[in-house]
């Protein structure tokens, strides 16, 4: 709580006006945010499961997640984990104050948004790890396989023990199950996230989307 308390006063300008109340997201944070959004939507709606493009997008998602997690330790104040530690009770309090129309400003994620961020990262981690376990640690294997098949060399498929589902191990099925559940969960969470942003933007008349889109300088 002291974290958000001191953060609130830091969000005020020297003259005490509530000008700098919306978070200033840095470019790396914005890039990883929209990158992850693109990867999740792309792999949900556009790519074929198990295809080399699906796998490549997954690896890109892992890279984005890793960079964001590093940024959580070395980034500027509003990107660091220390300024939005997970606190379910504070998240509930924030939602309650939002329902009363009195949600305070936070220099970083609000407590509910913070819980959402951690949940999304956990889902993304599970998704990428199960995906990698299913396809092998080499990001290029499936692409090489597809290239070989495209070139008419089916021996690669035979060597790998077949691409079909008939000789999959039970462990593989469990992985697939977890992968699918995590995928559905992350979509659900993403919808909740968008809904939360929309509600707070509307109820509190503050545009939470703009800081994630463009740097503040250009919005002024």
């Amino acid at each position: 709580m002291t974290e958000s308390g001191s953060g609130l006063s830091a969000g005020l300008s020297p003259k005490g006006q509530a000008t700098a109340t919306l978070p200033r997201w840095d470019p790396l944070l914005r890039l990883t945010h929209w990158g992850v959004a693109g990867v999740v939507l792309g792999n949900y709606a556009l790519t074929k499961e198990g295809s080399s493009v699906h796998i490549a997008l997954g690896w890109i998602g892992l890279g984005l997640l890793a960079l964001r997690l590093i940024w959580g330790f070395v980034g500027p104040a509003e990107a660091r984990f220390a300024s939005f530690s997970p606190n379910p009770m504070a998240a509930l309090r924030h939602l309650a104050s939002l329902a009363r129309g009195q949600a305070p400003h936070y220099p970083s994620h609000n407590p509910a948004g913070a819980m959402m961020a951690y949940a999304l990262w956990a889902c993304l981690a599970v998704l990428t790890v199960t995906g990698i376990l299913m396809t092998g640690a080499s990001p290029m294997k499936q692409a090489e396989l597809e290239a070989a098949v495209a070139a008419g060399d089916w021996s690669a498929v035979v060597e790998e023990g077949g691409d079909g589902e008939e000789n999959e191990s039970p462990g593989g099925e469990a992985l697939e199950e977890v992968h699918e559940v995590a995928a559905n969960l992350i979509l659900l969470l993403a919808l909740l996230h968008v809904a939360g942003v929309a509600v707070e933007s509307r109820v509190m008349r503050r545009n939470l989307v703009a800081p994630m889109l463009v740097p503040r300088r250009r919005r002024r």
Partner: peptide, 16 residues
């Protein structure tokens, strides 16, 4: 970002 993608690729490939 580009550097991170490359790092993830090489780490994955090395593990494989």
């Amino acid at each position: 970002l580009v550097q991170m993608f490359a790092a993830v690729f090489f780490v994955g490939d090395a593990i494989a």
